[in-house]
């Protein structure tokens, strides 16, 4: 991209506020946007996803970046808000690059006066696209949006092959457990679920899939996975991982039936797939 477009500076004049996991890969995206002529400001779309060394490198390059690993929810909102007016001369953004829709929602709901000056937005992930579709239906989508998630070279690669690498990587780094022989339940068999199930199977885990969609359930079964309901089978699982993009997947009923030392985690965008609110209230 840089070779092809770097000379022309086709993004000259664009003031892009981005809200996407501040990792080293994202740092390269930011540099690319800048090399194409844009002014860029950045926040992370998850309180834990920032790699501080990546954020530091971006800051050192003089790009306004508001992100660090392990912030609280108020700091999270504060960071996103800072990016909106972080451009030269205090000018506001004129493009949105979002992952999950938190920046989009803040601009639309809290700074509606800025909307007229914004050319459009691009959205990275399934969850954010769902929010945009809802706005499109109820007439509150106030600018053109490009759904990047449903490019084939995004969802069929990042969501699938990405999770295939990073799901087991995360569980190993966090717990150092032996995967081979363990029973893992993967909730959901969309692109993320397919990658996650393959990741666990590749490490030798015995994988059970849960699904609500008959097509995905049949795919899972014919890919060789056991497809079962969560609650009646959760007592068998050493690892439970949610991949659905929906909420209230692992709730009290499942928690009470888990075996001792079960590992529970989520690889979907938001933290409501596992009912953490109940867990923290009852046992926090």
């Amino acid at each position: 991209m840089r070779e092809q477009y770097g000379q022309e500076k086709p993004l000259k004049g664009a003031r892009i506020a981005g809200c996407l996991h501040m990792t080293i890969q994202t740092a390269v995206l930011i540099e690319t946007l800048q090399e194409l002529g844009a002014e860029v400001s950045w926040s992370s779309c998850n309180i834990f996803s920032t790699q501080d060394h990546a954020a530091a490198a971006i800051a050192e390059a003089g790009i306004p970046v508001y992100a660090w690993k392990g912030m609280n929810n108020e700091e999270f909102d504060w960071c996103i808000e800072q990016t909106i007016f972080a451009f030269e001369g205090g000018k506001p953004l004129n493009m949105i690059l979002d992952d999950g829709g938190d920046l989009t929602n803040m601009v639309f709901d809290k700074f509606p006066e800025l909307v007229a000056g914004i050319k459009g937005l691009s959205e990275e992930t399934t969850t954010g696209v769902l929010r945009l579709k809802e706005r499109e239906r109820n007439g509150t989508l106030v600018m053109p949006a490009i759904n990047v998630n449903d490019s084939v070279t995004k969802s069929k690669f990042d969501n699938k092959y990405g999770c295939k690498e990073s799901a087991v990587d995360a569980i190993r780094r966090a717990t150092d457990i032996m995967m081979a022989g363990k029973v893992a339940i993967v909730c959901g068999y969309g692109d993320v679920g397919k990658g996650t199930a393959a990741s666990l199977r590749g490490a030798g885990a015995r994988v059970i899939v849960t699904e609500i969609d008959p097509i995905c359930a049949l795919q899972a079964a014919m890919d060789g996975f056991e497809v079962k309901k969560l609650v009646p089978n959760v007592h068998r699982a050493d690892i439970i991982i949610t991949t659905t993009g929906n909420f209230n997947i692992v709730t009290e009923a499942a928690f009470r039936k888990m075996k001792d030392k079960a590992i529970v985690c989520n690889i979907g965008h938001f933290d409501n797939e596992i009912d953490m609110a109940w867990l923290n209230k009852a046992y926090g």
């Binding site: 996991h21 998850n46 990405g162 030392k261 953490m276």
Partner: peptide, 24 residues
């Protein structure tokens, strides 16, 4: 019984590891 929760229920691959590899 003990339950181990990773990354407070948030994106585990970015919370406990470094997300997806660069190529993808």
């Amino acid at each position: 019984k003990d339950v181990i929760i990773l990354a407070e229920g948030r994106l585990v691959n970015l919370g406990c590891a470094t997300g997806h590899p660069s190529f993808v």
